[in-house]
Nucleic acid binder design. Structure first.
Length: 917
RNA sequence: GCUCGGAUGGUGGAACAGGUAGACACGCAAGACUUAAAAUUUUGUGACCAUUGUGGUCAUGCGGGUUCAAAUCCCGCUCCGAGUACCA
């Protein structure tokens, strides 16, 4: 009987829906397993074949775990806030909610066709007020918390106020924007406004003047992970650096925990490495340099205190607050000129201009170790936001300082023995110190240690750990995002009362910023709370996705983000599947939110995702035709070198197995209607290459088309068979026939002349062996995410059973269950043909049994000098001597070995016998 | 620049811990079936040499090394990919 996937797939999709097969509830008798996909942003163009890759893998794994007896939570939802809907709204006036809703429906339709086992009752959308109520709620908790460096966790801001009232800032171990010194008396006499400003210095969600990435075209601020090379990732617009008052999250306070936490996670090493680099741990010292003829002190951070005798100048960032205090009178003009120059360049200019610029302040400071005066310079190669925004320059041992010194003709003092610095600096940390007084003769490592001790003993500085990780800027001057639950009373920000959440996004007539440049929410009527104005900015894209996994655990809870009962059962995500592009964005922010909620005792795990797997990208496979220059003649791929040709992208849907469908190509574009073709072997062969899947390259494959032609099961199997899950690979419909054949062969095992025909005979040992060998490989491959090889095992097994004409129930029943995670529809159909009345997913995954895999003889490879020649079988417990003798006899019988005498015979039990001549 | 990956037939890729390199699949070639094509099916398929057959030589980016034995471990290089970048 022909396998009619159209009928069968629809039938079972309806059945699963009707029977609520995938509805999951807490069940204390079963262990939980939480499989999560990174939820999609529903874009207007729908899914292409690359999108479902991760969903298929998670679906297979979730079904597998379910069959293994776990209570599997496998939800899905939508990350609904985003720039494209907003841009579309600005252009068309259509409310982004409508666009988003339409896109979500389209996504759902496409996802449903693939037969996933999501529990749709738990669906969430980040733009739903019922959901973003909790995003706002977490923000309020952050606003009302500070980070205590002593207990290493978030604490209520009221606790901080009590400490300030009692001791001032003296014993305050709190993460802060900048160090403040204040006595309790002084704190008490501050005005309410002043007090609130001081608290802002400590809150985890705080308002601050920071240098931000401003995109003048989008009229909004962007985070570091939202830009690349000075250009916004969404839209590709240039970025400027501006100082603005913004809401920020003090993620930097968690830097150390975020770094340490990585060690116990089962994440890909590359992903962990990216996060480690992004957090950027560096250990060094902070040194105080007194400014000559002034009370000012410059604090600089260095990881190389051993180079202190090589310091020949100091450089501070143009934005450094101390700049006005330092400039000598006579240099006022030239410094101002330079500061203006720096201010007016965009981020892109700064990156593009590798030019060395800077200006001398006319002022000197004193090297705290050797008391030498050192000139202070200003240059934009020093960043205001890292360390203290000032560096000690050691041109002999730092590439950038070297370039600067050469450019402005400043002295260069080497402090390591026997190095050549005539062409470039010597940056590596290997060598013996010279020119360095008490450090002379030490290795760099020893010198770092000794200089550190010296600096601390002399009280001219202290040890310090710096992180590269910056606080997250949390304000966006946009409409389509969660409103911040903040209102202003006399200019002082207060958080909205929790019982008044959610603060719903107001209706506005236009989605653009106002003419005066205020954020779009300024357009809203009555945008107030208790009569006071509400915050105008909205939350960034990562807000809604930072704790969404918790909401799936208890999606309809009106009182809590997640009940402790639900959280105690479902805990955190066991397996999280998604792209590596979220390494420095979503995956860091969620870890931070999660740790914060953990500190507040709202949840019981301090990491959100135990195991992460990154799926590879599916690239497009573009096809080309070759047009002979200035003609309408196209030449086949193999002959193109004989002509002067221009390659042209051709729609991959007009090509099959790289052979062009000429008629369909002619109709594609009126220009080609009368085209001529130079063929090879009667065919027009197209060239091909691997590129990103995109409309402009005509290489987009729509999963709907594949499903229509081959069915969802074949599509699922083929995506997994394409190659290793974590590797990027091009889509190529060419090989799909292999899967079609496999499914047909598999199906035919159950049928004889169009009739379902299964025998109840006892299988032979050989048949059992075939089955159990496959089961062993399949289950271990699923556990290792090696889906392609596990499908190979199915193919081998199917072919072997086909050869044996085996249609025995005991064999096929188990095989069908094993296939169910991959091809749920066909398996469910066959399962019901066996006479079962419940879903196949309520049964148990078959265990393999070693008994059937046992061999009575052991195969030994016989190799000469390591090169394998032939193999011999020996009964299991043959002694080494017997084996040796047998081998020697065997060699003797070979004519061509007559004159050779073995020097040594090495026997590796059960494996190999190597004979050395 | 720094960090992390990777390189295996015509193609996608197998090879668990160093032990038969190329599983499985695509493609290709030849045969069967067919008026023909498609589909199906059988056989072959790393390269080279030899051949009635058994066989032999070379092969996992390049050059070395360790080992009885290396795609796998070590050292050096080439190329490709990813992340990050005046982070002091």
């Amino acid at each position: 009987m022909e396998y009619n996937f159209n009928v069968i797939e629809k039938k079972w999709q309806k059945y699963w829906k009707r029977e609520n097969t995938y509805k999951i509830v807490v069940n204390k008798n079963k262990s939980k397993y939480y499989v999560l996909d990174m939820f999609p942003y529903p874009s207007g163009s729908g899914l292409h074949v690359g999108h479902p890759l991760g969903y298929i893998a998670s679906d297979i794994y979730a079904r597998y775990k379910r069959l293994k007896g776990f209570n599997v939570l496998h939800p899905m939802g939508y990350d609904a806030y985003g720039l494209p809907s907003e841009q579309y709204a600005i252009q068309t006036g259509q409310h982004p909610y409508m666009t988003t809703k339409k896109n979500i429906n389209r996504y759902r339709e496409q996802l449903d066709k693939l037969g996933f086992c999501f529990d749709w009752d738990r669906e969430i959308r980040t733009c739903d007020p019922k959901y973003y109520k909790w995003t706002q709620w977490v923000f309020i908790q952050m606003f009302n918390s500070y980070y205590c460096n002593e207990s290493k966790q978030a604490q209520p801001i009221n606790r901080l106020i009590k400490i300030l009232e009692k001791n001032g800032t003296k014993k305050l171990h709190a993460a802060c924007t900048k160090e403040i010194c204040l006595t309790a008396t002084k704190w008490r006499i501050k005005s309410e406004k002043e007090k609130q400003e001081i608290l802002m210095n400590y809150r985890i969600a705080y308002l601050s003047d920071t240098i931000v990435n401003w995109c003048p075209i989008l009229k909004t601020v962007l985070a570091n992970d939202e830009i690349n090379d000075g250009i916004s990732i969404r839209g590709g617009y240039p970025i400027e650096r501006r100082k603005m008052r913004q809401w920020c999250l003090r993620i930097s306070a968690y830097a150390n925990r975020l770094l340490k936490g990585l060690d116990k996670l089962e994440w890909p090493d590359s992903l962990k490495e990216i996060q480690r680099n992004w957090i950027g741990y560096s250990e060094g010292v902070e040194l105080r340099f007194k400014v000559q003829n002034s009370n000012a002190e410059l604090i600089i951070f260095t990881t190389r205190p051993d180079t202190i005798f090589g310091v020949t100048f100091i450089v501070i960032a143009p934005e450094n607050e101390l700049v006005p205090l330092i400039i000598a009178n006579k240099k006022q003009n030239s410094v101002n000129f330079y500061l203006n120059l720096v201010k007016n360049q965009t981020e892109m200019d700064r990156i593009a201009n590798k030019k060395i610029t800077g200006v001398f302040t006319g002022t000197y400071c004193i090297n705290p170790v050797n008391r030498e005066p050192i000139p202070i310079w200003i240059s934009d190669y020093v960043l205001a936001e890292y360390g203290t925004g000032a560096i000690m320059a050691v041109p002999a041992h730092d590439r950038r300082d070297y370039a600067f010194a050469k450019h402005f003709n400043l002295p260069i003092i080497p402090i390591l023995k026997g190095i050549d610095i005539s062409q470039k600096s010597f940056d590596s940390r290997i060598g013996i110190l010279i020119n360095s007084d008490f450090l002379n003769g030490l290795t760099v490592k020893e010198a770092i240690q000794k200089s550190k001790e010296y600096i601390e003993n002399k009280k001219i500085g202290n040890s310090k750990t710096n992180y590269r990780l910056r606080d997250a800027i949390f304000s966006r001057q946009r409409y389509w995002g969660e409103p911040l639950p903040i209102y202003y009373k006399n200019g002082i920000p207060f958080s909205v009362d929790e019982k008044d959440l959610p603060i719903k996004l107001p209706k506005i007539d236009k989605f653009l910023p106002t003419e005066a440049g205020a954020p779009p929410l300024k357009r809203a009527k009555n945008w107030t709370y208790k009569g006071y104005p509400l915050e105008l900015t909205t939350m960034p894209g990562f807000a809604g996705s930072s704790a969404y996994y918790l909401r799936y655990e208890d999606p309809n809870n009106k009182k809590h983000l997640v009940s402790s009962k639900a959280n105690k059962y479902w805990k955190n995500v066991d397996l999280y599947i998604g792209g590596i592009e979220h390494a420095t964005g979503h995956l860091i922010y969620s870890r931070f939110w999660n740790k914060f909620l953990f500190d507040l005792n709202i949840i019981i795990e301090d990491e959100p995702f135990k195991k992460v797997i990154n799926q590879g990208m599916i690239q497009g496979r573009s096809n080309f035709v070759y047009r002979i220059k200035n003609t309408n003649t196209f030449v086949s791929y193999g002959l193109k070198n004989q002509y002067d040709v221009i390659p042209i992208h051709v729609d991959v849907n007009k090509v099959s197995n790289d052979i062009l469908d000429i008629e369909s190509f002619k109709k594609w574009n009126p220009e080609y209607l009368n085209a001529e073709f130079i063929l090879e072997n009667g065919k027009y062969i197209c060239g091909w290459t691997t590129e990103k899947m995109s409309k402009s390259m005509f290489n987009v494959i729509n999963p709907d088309d594949i499903v229509t032609r081959f069915g969802a099961d074949v599509f699922r199997l083929y995506e997994m068979f394409l190659g290793p899950f974590e590797q990027s690979k091009p889509w190529n419909t060419k090989g799909i026939n292999g899967i079609v054949r496999f499914i047909r062969n598999f199906w035919n095992l159950f049928f004889k002349k169009d009739k379902f025909s299964i025998s109840n005979e006892q299988p032979t040992n050989e048949e059992f062996k075939i089955l159990h060998k496959a089961l062993k490989k399949i289950s271990s491959d699923i556990e290792n995410f090696s889906f392609n090889t596990s499908i190979s095992a199915f193919m081998i097994c199917t072919n072997e059973l086909k050869t044996l004409k085996c249609n025995k129930y005991s064999i096929l029943n188990e095989l069908v269950i094993a296939l169910a995670p991959f091809a749920p529809h066909i398996s469910e159909e066959l399962w019901h043909l066996f006479g079962n009345k419940t879903s196949i997913f309520d049964t148990k995954f078959p265990e393999y049994n070693e008994i059937y895999l046992k061999e009575d003889t052991k195969k030994y490879m016989i190799s000469f000098n390591g090169k394998t020649r032939f193999s011999l079988n020996f009964p299991l417990n043959t002694s080494e001597d017997d084996i040796k003798n047998a081998v020697l006899t065997h060699i003797d019988s070979k004519k061509w070995l007559k004159n050779k005498i073995p020097k040594k015979i090495i026997i590796i039990p059960n494996k190999i016998i190597n004979i050395v001549f």
